[in-house]
Design a binder for these strands. Structure first.
Lengths: 214, 214, 214, 214
DNA sequence: CTTTAACCGAGACGGTACGTCATGTCTTACG
DNA sequence: CGTAAGACATGACGTACCGTCTCGGTTAAAG
């Protein structure tokens, strides 16, 4: 998040409602215009706020969009569906649903692109989105370990690496399917993806469910 | 690619060298400025070409950047390293090396972001980059099937779905690791990724290499 | 005029019809677009001719428009209406009619404006338009002298000055009335103008026709 | 004139000094470049002002030049030199001096040319230049009537027509002499012109001066 | 009846200016 | 001091014409 009421108590206090109005206006503008056509002047008009107010609270377009998009992912949950594979399918479908919304599609990729040249923005994305949502992987892993589906890690460092890897594999595959390949991440695809993620391309000699991802 | 001398033979022919100069200038500008600061006027100056020449050959910045970035991925190869896992590791490391280059980083994500609102651009990306590089997955899969590591698909449709899935999983994980999580896709990470991709999170009862991605 | 077949006799001769087509297209474009919106590319298209052909024959827009407009004034005649005043009225009405045509209005003033910074263009205008039409003043003056309405000049130099003055007074007044004051030079106005020109503002104590210009 | 601070009192007020700087820069650019080479971007640079500021205050080049040129004619005065003819000679010489300045020469004719296709511009010229300077004719006429050199008009309508006619004859002749014939309106020419204007080409039987204009 | 040289159409080219738009800053009046 | 309004300097946009050039091809007079 961005704006804190500053330490000093004097002067007119900031209008607290403005923050929410600005973020909502940003998402609406993303839907209608996409990132590159979105202008801060337009957001200000939609939010019923002066451009100065907006600049006083966010440094620029990128940071504003990160905050506006980050909120979208807070609605993700990890319902207990009984097995690791089922839990993964459940959360991946939620994630795919969010990525199907235009404000997430164009906003997310655009700020990632900008972040390739802006260390501060990269950090903001990591803090507001990536680390924030790793909670889902952590919860799923803990649940699977409690069920005996996954072995506990030998040490904390290895655990962290495993969480990071799974997060990148899950989020990356869904994003790539949705935005680069531009195909829907529907139930069928999610099912195949989960099978490969859980069992691998070559499920081994055991009595596994069957080879291909189809 | 972009400019073909049109069917009619009349008129002064296009300068063939200009295309290459423009694409090289685009990549150079991407390195120095990133996508959002890149201007077509600047590219034209770098390429020693008039702005009008550039607009005569590409509709706009997005299409130009797609073409400039697409060329980067043509250098990917699939060396035969003896096993499916080793082949995957080899190509993923090459892919990670390309994504470490700034012209690929900002260019690729930016055009993907733009493509969320532009069907024609989406198609251009799919044709120039996605479909073009699926050759790697196809070659690797065929080689693994020849070795007996993977079972042949029952039908063409299933084969296509499998190729798409693997492509999204590989490319998506590397892109996410590199650009969103902003961590390097180094040998250690690639090794862990490949183990999960080939054997799954729960390798099952067989004599598999052992669990976890560590 | 412009294009002469050059000294060398070999080679394909110029298409003679093109000159007329270009000048006609120029006048048509002046009517529709005015001087500042007129483009040589457009004239070439209207004339069914390549832009190169046009540039081979005229140095630029200004010279082309001078030639196109100059032709308009060649239709002026000086009918013998019996008296100096009547002759003046007759030719002034013809002149006003030409200036009421849009190709003359915008073309003439525009090239005069350009000529303020281009000596060669000034000379072209003087030769093609001014000197060419002084024939009317010369003829009228000679006729009035034959009738005894005007005294013959004492010497050639004085005669030339008188002709120049009358030409400037007649042409200037009509042009100013028509284009600057933007009022029509109708019969009533021409009548008043002629009275002042012939008899002056203060016609003197004699039995003149009466004072004011009304 | 052009820019008034709008009715609303909010917002940053316009920089009042900018108007004068822009008009002065316009005249300077007219001197150096002429109308057709004058660009608004260049004027903005000379005035130390952004191009947007300029477009905020004037619709385009034509209107800007009208305002810049109109100011030049405000310095005209009508000194009392004792007789109608002397008064006319005085003001005509002043007018000729202004028309000898390059910013007046190219600017005035160019906007007149443009006005042939633009009713609003025509009205702007009439209001800013023509009607504004008729004050000189009115004053001269009143003075001549007070001296008894001219008879008073019978009615207001006739008076207006007389003023218009004289204005067109004086301004038109000087403009034509200066810009179309491209000869200087020097003292000798002005003397001859005034004689014809006051006494006519055929001064009649009275004891007038000599006949010809020489 | 072949050369030869200028003509012609088409259209790409390097430029320049256009008029608009967005950015981020500033300056005012008001609360 | 926060705020709304809006002017401001800056700079890129994508378009339009400029006048030049480079083609393939045509056309007539000269040899």
């Amino acid at each position: 998040m961005q704006s804190r009421t500053p330490a000093g108590r004097t002067g007119r206090p900031r209008n607290a409602a403005a923050d929410a109005a600005i973020l909502a206006a940003t998402r609406q503008a993303l839907v209608e215009l996409g990132w590159s056509k979105l202008t801060l002047g337009d957001v200000a008009v939609r939010a019923g706020v002066a451009k100065t107010t907006l600049y006083r609270r966010w440094p620029g377009k990128n940071e504003l969009v990160v905050d506006a998009v980050a909120e979208l992912f807070d609605e993700l949950t990890l319902p207990d569906r009984g097995s690791l594979a089922a839990d993964i399918e459940g959360v991946v479908l939620q994630f795919a649903a969010i990525l199907a919304r235009p404000e997430a599609r164009s906003g997310l990729m655009a700020v990632v692109a900008e972040a390739t040249r802006d260390e501060a923005l990269r950090e903001r994305i990591r803090a507001s989105i990536v680390e924030r949502q790793k909670r889902l992987v952590l919860a799923g892993r803990a649940r699977a370990q409690a069920r005996g589906e996954l072995a506990p890690e030998s040490d904390a460092d290895e655990a962290a690496r495993a969480v990071d890897l799974i997060f990148d594999m899950v989020a990356g595959a869904v994003v790539h399917r949705t935005l680069v390949s531009a195909e829907p991440a529907d139930e069928k695809w999610v099912h195949g993806f989960t099978r490969v993620l859980v069992s691998g391309l070559t499920p081994g000699p055991g009595p596994g469910p069957g080879p291909g991802p189809g």
